[in-house]
């Protein structure tokens, strides 16, 4: 950024440019420039979404009504999926918040040789596909996996029978994958806390726990809220991890959409589940945007 700012960006020949005064034309022309991308977004994103909603009210025999909704909502697989989705997302988010807070705290305030490398690794994980974690977990926690084999060698038996196919494994995998999403905004927030504030707090007699509770946590709330709600949103929508672990009993809403839409080609049913899922995450997203616009933290730190 600085490199671009320091060089003169207007080193072109201004005299050769035809002098045109466009300032007076006002907002109407300038608003027109937004139209092409907006039309594309409408055509390829909003229009399909609208069709999904419409399709959910049309059954396979082209009858319009609430029949598909009634069928899907009454099916036990839907209730299970909804409950699993919410349960896994909430537990994963809580785990990410706890683990992410601890890791960010240590990286920021108890740094060690190599902590920069650790931050780099964390940044890299952000760009990885999530299914990678699930694949690794099959080697680690599978019945014939490394953990069981190691425990067996140590004479501890095989402690992880069935763990891979339990919701807990999905939760652990999502914590692994999404913890960086909590850490990024936290690290940014902690970087803004002057070290003197912690020093002075200690000199006033506060131990580490009191400093964390009374000096650092209040600074971290906005970042925790922003990172936490984004993580909740992403874990609600997570698909790759659940798909790759492939536990038969752990079905979530995105898995149900996939099963109905791409496996059994029940488009109307898939659309009903999709509408529920979108409604759920949109509600959350609105909350997230609200938190974000109030604090200004989070998104910029996550994306840029």
């Amino acid at each position: 950024m600085t490199a671009t700012l320091t060089e003169p960006p207007i080193a072109t020949k201004p005299t050769s440019a035809p002098v045109r005064e466009r300032r007076g034309r006002g907002g109407a022309t300038r608003a027109l420039w937004v139209l092409p991308p907006l039309v594309l977004a409408a055509g390829f994103f909003l229009y399909p979404l609208a069709l999904v909603v419409k399709q959910s009210f049309v059954d396979k025999n082209e009858n319009v009504g609430l029949d598909v909704w009634r069928d899907v909502l009454n099916s036990p697989s839907f209730g299970d999926a909804l409950w699993n989705t919410v349960k896994i997302a909430v537990l994963s988010t809580l785990g990410c918040l706890v683990v992410g807070f601890f890791l960010a705290l240590v990286l920021s305030f108890v740094p060690f040789p190599g902590s920069r490398a650790v931050s780099r690794i964390v940044d890299t994980v952000l760009a990885f596909p999530s299914f990678l974690i699930a694949l690794a977990f099959t080697f680690l926690y599978g019945t014939a996996g490394v953990v069981n084999a190691a425990a067996d060698k140590l004479g501890l038996g095989e402690p992880l029978v069935g763990f891979l196919y339990s919701p807990w494994c999905v939760v652990l995998a999502e914590i692994t994958f999404y913890t960086p999403f909590v850490m990024r905004p936290l690290l940014a927030a902690f970087a803004l806390v002057p070290r003197e504030r912690l020093d002075v707090a200690a000199s006033l007699g506060a131990g580490p726990l009191r400093v964390i509770r009374q000096v650092l946590l209040p600074e971290a709330w906005p970042a925790l809220a922003a990172g936490g709600s984004l993580t909740l949103l992403l874990t609600l929508n997570e698909f790759g991890i659940v798909l790759f672990i492939g536990a038969k009993d752990v079905t979530t809403l995105p898995m149900l959409v996939h099963a109905k839409g791409a496996v059994t080609f029940d488009y109307p049913g898939a659309c009903v589940v999709a509408v529920v899922e979108v409604a759920l995450s949109l509600t959350l997203y609105t909350v997230y945007r609200f938190v974000f616009s109030r604090t200004g933290a989070g998104r910029a730190g996550l994306v840029a």
């Binding site: 994103f45 229009y47 999904v52 995105p254 999709a274 979108v278």
Partner: peptide
């Protein structure tokens, strides 16, 4: 908005549309 919509739903929308 797309960040709030699950990827499978985006796919489903493409199929439907």
């Amino acid at each position: 908005l797309p960040v709030a919509v699950p990827s499978v739903v985006v796919g489903l929308g493409m199929l439907v549309a």
